[in-house]
């Protein structure tokens, strides 16, 4: 062994899809989560994200099985708390790529409070809201985003409330910086949106309407069978910098707008505001230790 600064040689990184695959997904056949998984794995491959520098954080729900199927670091947390965990990771390890997979129950119900403040904090992460408009893991209860009239185990006569719109809620929070929407049955648009979210510096919120073939099998059939009922924002000339226009689009559900609704790269991120600009010894220590420990990704 030679006396070199680096004990491990880092070979040229070229990743394949298989490098990010871990385990066979146990979602139902036809579940939209499969499409989201495929799109995210493609993103990791195309951006050559180092698996040891990438972490997926989730709460509870079908969507939150996501980290188990990614060959990266993952944190499968408790119900509704994916976002505060992810924020903690960002503060402790600003060098990691942080992704959050949450569902309509995990984010918009029990986790709603964390969600609002996470938008305001605008910490750099990509959040994917797997919105299938039902509680799937617990076998069919109405969620905050279930359309009015949805029959479920808890609303046998149909839900009586208007559905919560995650897009308008997010766009209503101060310091919002990135909001987008996609649908799982258009994989090319889904991929482009996921990629745009990754590249945005700040809190990227992406609502992905996904099918639940088990509990709401026909929910999106009218939109799937008629492409005109899905509005591709990249082809309409919509300006993502225009907040009012974004809010107007966000309130529409027919046609479903897909693409980037709003993007503000100037919104300040909490990490930048919080961190002192001066050189601090503990920071140096931590970065040195982290750089050294990160080399040891091999477990003999």
């Amino acid at each position: 062994m030679t006396d070199t600064a680096c004990l491990l040689r880092l070979y040229e990184e070229k990743y394949e899809l298989e490098d990010y695959q871990s385990g066979v997904p146990r979602w139902c056949s036809g579940c939209g989560d499969n499409a989201i998984l495929a799109a995210v794995q493609r993103l990791c491959r195309d951006e050559a994200l180092r698996p040891e520098k990438t972490v997926f954080v989730s709460g509870i729900g079908c969507s939150s099985r996501f980290p188990h199927y990614m060959n990266t670091y993952g944190f499968h947390g408790i119900h509704g708390r994916a976002l505060p965990v992810a924020e903690g990771i960002r503060m402790a390890r600003p060098d990691l790529h942080v992704f959050v997979n949450t569902g309509d129950g995990d984010c918009c119900s029990i986790g709603a409070a964390h969600w609002l403040h996470a938008v305001r904090y605008n910490m750099h992460m990509s959040v994917f809201l797997h919105d299938n408009q039902i509680y799937g893991l617990t076998k069919m209860q109405a969620s905050p985003t279930s359309p009015k009239g949805t029959k479920s185990n808890t609303t046998p006569r149909g839900s009586s409330l208007e559905a919560l719109n995650p897009l308008t809620v997010t766009l209503g929070v101060q310091n919002v910086s990135f909001v987008a929407q996609a649908v799982d049955w258009m994989p090319d648009v889904l991929y482009e949106v996921v990629r745009a979210a990754f590249h945005h510096q700040g809190f990227s919120f992406v609502r992905i309407l996904q099918r639940c073939p088990e509990w709401l099998p026909d929910r999106f059939d009218p939109w799937m069978q008629d492409p005109k009922r899905v509005l591709r924002l990249d082809k309409t000339g919509h300006d993502p910098a225009n907040l009012e226009s974004a809010r107007a689009l966000a309130s529409r559900d027919d046609p479903i707008p897909v693409g980037v609704l709003y993007r503000n790269p100037q919104a300040p991120c909490y990490e930048d505001l919080r961190r002192s600009q001066g050189l601090r010894t503990p920071e140096l220590i931590r970065s040195g230790l982290e750089a050294e420990f990160d080399r040891f990704t091999v477990w003999p």
């Binding site: 579940c31 939209g32 499969n34 998984l37 495929a38 493609r42 799982d184 049955w185 258009m186 090319d188």
Partner: peptide, 23 residues
């Protein structure tokens, strides 16, 4: 190009239907 990787067809016959590099 429009496949959503839902595994429906590969579960029916994984030799007839396969995934490409983009799954």
């Amino acid at each position: 190009a429009r496949c959503t990787s839902c595994d429906e067809c590969t579960r029916i016959n994984s030799r007839m239907f396969a995934y490409d590099a983009n799954k």
